[in-house]
């Protein structure tokens, strides 16, 4: 038993030193389509071993182009793409990656089991069949035709396909679309356990909650460029306008909502307050020192009521970061 663990550990250390922890990288990528549209404009992105990275951005930001480049389905106009130090179109690199794409239609007259058999067959060392079925929660539908299962079940089969080769790098494009809450939590748990086993996961999603709870790192892109990058907490703070993307973030940003007679000018002068907005009767204040701000507000305004204190939501950050300022 101990011996087995030792072998696994030594293999891991070796891999780590060999790849210097960087599993995949996009360096200074520009992608211009033949119709003149520039999808990516000087984008750089590194994926490290064992991390879950969420790629966020509005529709048309260049997310799927970035993912396609990493899967070797497309080539950049300039810049370089490396997967495990090799070209992504290299067969050796493909054997170590798994992909889940939004597929409109898959062959419907094949059974779930048959789809998995086909994809497992592409890899020299596939993940054991039973493990895939368990990880993707396909127990009981293995013998159903793909065309006869529900949308959420199809989504889980596509997830299973991405795991077929027991890959070290997994691309998941909107993995939980159409899943019910229970199935979504199940897939999240599975993605976390993949990362815990040293696998790298790149996730694109429209569910900000998903990025918030799963990702070690969030990369927000817009118009083909990285707008900001950091842990979920960092991204939220940056989005709240309290720090420049390069600056240090305290991580203690709060949004205070209340009904108060204090004027905006007065509030802005208080310690830590960075923005004040008035929506009807409600004043919304962002503060980096929420405790002192609140103490002062409560002391000055005895009539203050309807008080709420919140952490900034990723959604607000996302909207702020990708807003069209031009």
């Amino acid at each position: 038993m101990n011996a087995v663990i030792d072998v696994a550990e030594s293999t891991e250390t070796r891999q780590t030193t060999k790849t210097h922890d960087t599993v995949a990288s996009l360096s200074d990528i520009t992608k211009r389509y033949s119709n003149g549209v520039v999808a990516l404009d000087g984008l750089s992105l590194d994926l490290r071993r064992g991390e879950v990275v969420a790629l966020l951005g509005p529709n048309g930001a260049g997310k799927s182009t970035a993912v396609k480049l990493m899967m070797g389905l497309s080539t950049p106009t300039s810049g370089s793409v490396r997967i495990f130090g090799a070209d992504p179109r290299n067969a050796a690199a493909r054997i170590r990656t798994g992909v889940m794409l939004q597929v409109g239609r898959a062959p419907e007259m094949l059974r779930v089991r048959e789809h998995l058999t086909v994809f497992r067959g592409y890899y020299p060392n596939p993940m054991p069949y039973a493990d895939i079925v368990k990880a993707a929660g396909l127990e009981g539908i293995e013998d159903r035709m793909f065309g006869q299962i529900s949308g959420g079940q199809k989504q889980r089969v596509l997830f299973a396909i991405s795991l077929a080769g027991d890959p070290d790098l997994i691309f998941l494009d909107e993995p939980t679309v159409g899943l019910d809450i229970e199935a979504r939590r199940g897939m999240w748990a599975e993605i976390r356990s993949l990362a815990a086993r040293g696998k790298t996961v790149l996730l694109t999603t429209h569910y900000l909650e998903e990025a918030d709870s799963l990702a070690h790192r969030i990369v927000v892109i817009n118009k083909g460029r990285v707008v900001c990058e950091g842990t979920p907490a960092e991204v939220k703070s940056i989005g709240a306008g309290l720090s420049t993307p390069s600056g240090n973030v305290t991580g203690d940003v709060k949004i205070i909502r209340c009904t108060t007679t204090l004027t905006g000018k007065h509030l802005l002068a208080m310690p830590g307050v960075s923005t004040v907005e008035l929506y009807g009767k409600t004043t919304v204040i962002t503060s980096t020192q929420p405790e002192s701000t609140l103490r002062e507000m409560l002391a000055l305004d005895q009539q203050l009521h309807s008080l709420e204190v919140q952490s900034p939501a990723l959604e607000d950050a996302f909207l702020a970061l990708t807003a069209d300022r031009s």
Binding site: M71, G72, L73, A91, R94, I95, T97, V99, L101, V103, G104, R105, A106, P107, F119, Y122, Y123, L158, I161, A164, G165, F171
Partner: peptide, 9 residues
């Protein structure tokens, strides 16, 4: 579907 297959080995 073909993209998914082509991204595989």
């Amino acid at each position: 579907w073909l993209e998914l297959k082509r991204a595989s080995p």
